[in-house]
Design a protein around this nucleic acid. Structure first.
Length: 857
RNA sequence: GGGCAGCUAGCUCAGCUGGUUAGAGCGUUUGCUUUACACGCAAAAGGCCAUAGGUUCGAUCCCUAUGCUGCCCACCA
């Protein structure tokens, strides 16, 4: 049959063509029509019941753009998914968009310069929804450009009805199981976003500041036999006579908290302070009297060895010093201003209060020294505002009592790469707070609860009615079951965005299962559609191998191990007492060319759309194979060019092959392989075995290396040159054997490259091989399998290597003598002997009329 | 302070469960239109495999320290 081959490969138009083709033919949909060719059957690869499902990370649409970092991690996961699809798995690859919660609110606030207090809740939500939709469109477009093989009929957004229903169900289920609590106490608070935070929402920030040495009066006279207390290590600091007698000095970075000081602590082994036992101190400026207390936890070498404990300056105060039991009120209000507890300083924002109070301390002679220090504190990761503590009532999912079990759950996962498990262990081991899931924000999933206006009894929504918005809807009861009151107030808080995204394994399973794995939630009409019944569980065994839950693979970035991954394990453990998935692949960061993390703030990235426009999607995907899983990858235009070159090389090599395969009918059982054929097939077999092993281990980078090595070195540089004289020669039999081998090798090369370079491989496959394989896309074709007969003996390989060596020497001779490789030589004198049957082959390949062996007649 | 990862050619990285001359790509240099490809081909130069000890017949690889680099976690009164 005639093969129409353009001179050059126009990636722009061809890639677009295949995008349309894949969509039109539904290639990537769950339950696609699979190849029933003999090879699939032989490999047991046509089993639609073998599901490989992927809990694709839903990017925050508020990121407003995707950069090379996203491209890298999504491509890397996709290499594995495409490999699995070719292995015959029924692949379920949905896509989500994370669009609720603080990230989106922050984005909208910044874009529209909005102050949360000056806009109505509904107006604000409207803007969020609008931006959410725009973001999702842009993302979908880029994933499509990149050739990500997701099933676009299976998408979700974390704010949609489907996700809200599951998220609210989760809350109610955990409430009924006793895993959630409504609890009052000091909690991390962001004064800027004005909401409670969880431990996982914080990050470190280091800044230069001052350690302030402040004097307190001791209420009673000191013990006369002890040395005077003075300002720490700096013995040259001026110490007044008064200080020596009835003054103590403390060092603090947070003088603004003096008003909330509840005690002064020293180490019981610190003899300097023994005389203070049972005495009291008077706090300067604020004048309240506080007790001296002793604790081993005080480091006698820090500052003056005497510390001030406040309500609630930091986590230590609460956990170690139990200050929440010493005081009941916050020094700070929800906006980060001092409360009436601060007396005349009430209403000052915290930063300003520090300056004013320091000034007052100074003028009263209380501030005796300031020592510059670098100190690290926790800030809200979304806005970099220092986190404070205030006492409020929040909803918590209990974690601390289940640490051991949660560690065990994490250990059961298959981690790729393995060492990433350490990050999980560290986080869970060091957890100090339960998970605060309530946020005092607007754009999120509402809690499905009301409170009795009179007795505060909690009224849960009826599961059948989910999702509900208690602000808009009435509770399911007319009277409070406890006090018979008929008035209710809705919960106005929304849930932490992770409370929803931690449910993604359920969310995506539920997109497919008319028989819900959460049997109590009836599917609403129209949400579930077209799905094969084999995917459903049944009542007796809701989670069989045929079901989608648990999911097979969770691909994600390492920085959200402590959030997305951890919280997902938590939810699955509490709801179902099982793992949400079995495999985890953790990707690294994309870095800029200088090795810095790519970030919006630095603007150090090139738009992926631009790269794809310039070099093609295949080329950009190729770049993503440059780092091993979990490693960071620098943006490197050279590597993208290399990808582009590979695509061109595949096109050119294929062009050559196809001209010789025209009008050729492959015959698998062709015999009389010549040595070059056997040699190439042997290496093809080795390459398939290695590449398969690497893909199984999620080592797409190593897979690419062995495939590229075979394709460039063995196939193009050698094999194609080795058979040219046969393809152009008169020996019809020899020509056909070469053609048959060419057919086999090229097809397998395309298949091997297909997960990484889906466009060019599809192009060549459709041009020619589809006529023989019949599968409608290479991406549904079977993964290559080495034939046993391809393996060659050591003896053969040694002899052939010797022959190759001779060919190399002849090429080298021509090169050093500035001769073209096509130049015909009358004779060449070789030093090492090769088997006689290869001499003719060498002479033809190298265009030497006569090979003479030195010293051999 | 605890932990994880890394330190190999000018650059980006493979490799080694210990064994002759340590690899690739890019870059550099020199040739060459081999009836697919100059986005190519054939070559060349370039490495005390971070440092110091140890185990061993033998260490880039294993062990112990040390030093840098990046990250995670904690502390920071």
């Amino acid at each position: 049959m005639p093969i129409e081959l353009p001179k050059n490969y126009d990636f722009k138009s061809r890639e677009e063509y295949w995008r349309d083709f894949w969509e039109k033919e539904k290639i990537y949909q769950l339950d696609n029509t699979r190849d029933s060719s003999p090879s699939h059957v032989a490999q047991g690869q046509n089993d639609n019941n073998k599901i490989f499902s992927v809990d694709t990370p839903p990017p925050y649409v508020s990121a407003s753009h995707l950069h090379a970092g996203h491209i890298m991690s999504y491509s890397q996961a996709e290499f594995i998914v495409r490999y699995k699809r070719m292995r015959g798995f029924n692949v379920y690859y949905p896509m989500g968009f994370d669009d609720n919660g603080l990230p989106t609110e922050r984005f909208v606030e910044q874009k529209y310069q909005i102050d949360k207090s000056k806009i109505s809740r509904s107006e604000f939500i409207k803007l969020c929804l609008k931006e959410t939709q725009l973001g999702a469109e842009a993302y979908k477009n880029l994933w499509r450009l990149l050739g990500i093989s997701v099933d676009w009929t299976k998408t979700y957004s974390t704010i949609n009805e489907h996700c809200q229903r599951i998220s609210q169900w989760s809350f109610i289920d955990l409430y009924k199981k006793g895993r959630v609590e409504h609890r009052e106490g000091p909690i991390y608070w962001c004064p800027h976003c004005q909401t409670a935070l969880a431990q996982a929402d914080l990050e470190d920030k280091t800044e230069k500041g001052f350690l302030n040495y402040i004097t307190f009066d001791v209420a009673n006279a000191p013990h006369p036999s002890l040395p005077p207390v003075h300002g720490g290590k700096d013995t040259d600091a001026p110490i007044s006579q008064k200080e020596k007698e009835n003054i103590v000095v403390i060092a603090t970075t947070r003088p603004e908290l003096l008003g909330a000081c509840v005690a002064l602590y020293f180490n019981p082994n610190d003899k300097r302070y023994h005389h203070l036992k049972n005495k009291r101190a008077q706090v300067p400026v604020f004048n309240q009297e506080v007790p001296f207390m002793a604790s081993e936890a005080v480091d006698p070498n820090f500052g003056t060895g005497l510390m001030m404990v406040c309500t609630w300056g930091d986590k230590e105060d609460i956990i170690k010093w139990q200050t929440d039991k010493l005081a009941t009120r916050s020094l700070l209000d929800t906006t980060g201003c001092l409360t009436d507890l601060a007396g005349k300083y009430q209403g000052l924002p915290i930063g300003q209060a520090r300056q004013v109070i320091l000034q007052d301390l100074k003028s009263q002679g209380r501030l005796i020294r300031q020592e510059p220090i670098e100190h690290t504190f926790n800030v809200h990761e979304r806005c970099s505002t220092p986190a404070e503590f205030i006492k409020t009532k929040q909803w918590f999912i209990k974690l601390l009592d289940a640490k051991k079990e949660l560690l065990a759950q994490g250990k059961k996962l298959h981690w790729h790469p393995e060492h990433m498990f350490q990050k999980y262990t560290d986080w869970v081991t060091n957890l100090q707070w339960d998970w605060c899931v309530s946020r005092q924000r607007y754009y999120g999933v509402p809690f499905p609860i009301w409170y009795c206006d009179k007795c505060n009894e909690i009224i849960l929504a009826n599961i059948k009615n989910l999702p509900v918005d208690p602000m808009e809807q009435e509770p399911p009861v007319k009277k409070c079951p406890k006090c018979q009151s008929t008035k209710f107030k809705p919960e106005t808080d929304v849930m932490d965005t992770w409370a929803t995204s931690s449910m993604t394994p359920v969310i995506i399973s539920e997109l497919c299962s008319p028989n819900s794995i959460i049997p109590v939630i009836p599917a609403k009409a129209g949400i579930h559609s077209d799905v094969d019944s084999r995917l459903r569980g049944n009542d007796n065994n809701p989670r069989t191998n045929n079901n989608i839950y648990p999911i097979t693979l969770r691909p994600q970035a390492f920085e959200i191990i402590r959030t997305w991954l951890f919280y997902t394990l938590v939810k699955s453990f509490y709801h179902f007492n099982q793992l949400p998935f079995s495999e985890v692949m953790i990707s690294g960061h994309g870095l800029d060319a200088q090795g810095r993390k790519i970030s919006k703030r630095l603007g150090n990235y090139v738009l992926p759309e631009k790269i794809i426009d310039q070099y093609g999607a295949d080329a950009l995907r190729y770049w993503a194979t440059g780092a091993m899983l979990g490693e960071n990858l620098r943006y490197n235009e050279e590597e993208i060019k290399m990808g582009h070159k590979t695509v061109t090389k595949i096109f050119n090599a294929s062009k050559f092959c196809l001209t010789h395969l025209e009008n050729f009918t492959p015959n698998k059982n062709a015999t009389n392989l010549e040595p070059a054929d056997s040699w190439a097939l042997h290496h093809l077999g080795q390459t398939i075995a290695k590449a398969t092993q690497h893909f199984e281990q999620y080592e797409y980078a190593k897979a690419k290396n062995v495939i590229a090595d075979f394709f460039w070195r063995i196939f193009c540089d050698n094999y194609l040159e080795f058979i040219k004289y046969r393809l152009y020669g008169d020996d019809q039999k020899s020509t056909n054997v070469a053609r048959q081998t060419l057919f086999t090798i090229l097809l397998n090369i395309l298949k091997l490259y297909a997960p990484i370079l889906p466009f060019i491989t599809e192009e060549i496959y459709q041009l020619y091989f589809k006529n023989f394989i019949k599968t409608k896309s290479i991406h549904l074709a079977s993964w290559p399998q080495a034939e046993k007969s391809w393996a060659q003996s050591e003896k053969f390989l040694t002899e052939f290597d010797k022959t190759l060596n001779l060919i190399d020497n002849i090429r080298k001779y021509k090169s050093t003598n500035n001769l073209s490789l096509g130049k015909e030589l009358d004779k060449f004198e070789a030093t090492d002997k090769i088997p006689t049957e290869y001499i003719d082959f060498v002479q033809k390949v190298t265009r030497v009329k006569k090979i003479i062996f030195a010293g051999v007649v």
